[in-house]
Structure formats: C-alpha cells, structure tokens
Amino acid sequence: MISLTHFLFVSACLFCIGLYAIIAKRNSIMILIGIEFIINAAILNLVAFGRYDKINYSGQIFALFAIVLAAAAVAVGLAIILNVYRKYKTINPENITDLRD
C-alpha cells in the first residue's frame, strides 16, 4: 500500500538531488535539470496533498500551472544559455566570470 509518506519521501529525495545538481554547478544545462528536479518534487507533493482537498482541487490546479510555468522558464533559460555559448564557447558557469567584485 502506497501511503502519503512514500510520496513525500520520494519528493524529498528528488529535491535533494536537484539541489545537489544546482550547487555542484559544473554545467549550466545541469543546473537547469536540477531546477526541473526541484519543480517536479514540488509537483509530486502538490498532487499527493491534493488528494485530501476534494472540494477545490487546488493542488492539482497548482501542479498544472507549475508544469506550464516551468516549461516557459526552461525555454527562456535554454535560449539564454545558447546565447552565452555563442559569445564564450563554454557553458561552465565557473569559466564565465567577467562580472564580479
């Protein structure tokens, strides 16, 4: 029997993997993938909790909007990374440091 706890555990794991991918920052695309991991963890949480909210279904609705917004943000992010690649010929954030104190 899969209970709510299982869902929460999986989503916490997804969140941690995503956070690691962002903090390790080897590659801009990997950071975007990490962000997607976190968003999917949140979506899983929302849908799992939404089961108990049978009147409004706010969780499900929120999950749908989150998917759409995540797709939009990633599309813009990829376009910007492509632009950076044209200028720098690399997408490793550690090599792109013209702006700093």
Binding site: I39, N45, F62, N83, I96
Partner: peptide
C-alpha cells in the same frame, strides 16, 4: 557582459522560484 548577466539572472531566478514552489507545496500540505 549582457549575455553573462542574463544567464546568471535566469539560473539564479529559476532556482529560487523552484525552491519557493517546493516550500509552497509543503505549506499547502
């Protein structure tokens, strides 16, 4: 510089709003 600024902004911003979404899902719970 503009390309770099845009990349830093987009990555930092998406990461922050993703973390916020996770927090919101917990609060919804």
């Amino acid at each position: 510089k503009q390309a770099e600024a845009a990349m830093k902004y987009a990555l930092f911003g998406s990461a922050c709003s993703a973390v916020m979404l996770y927090g919101l899902s917990l609060i919804y719970g």
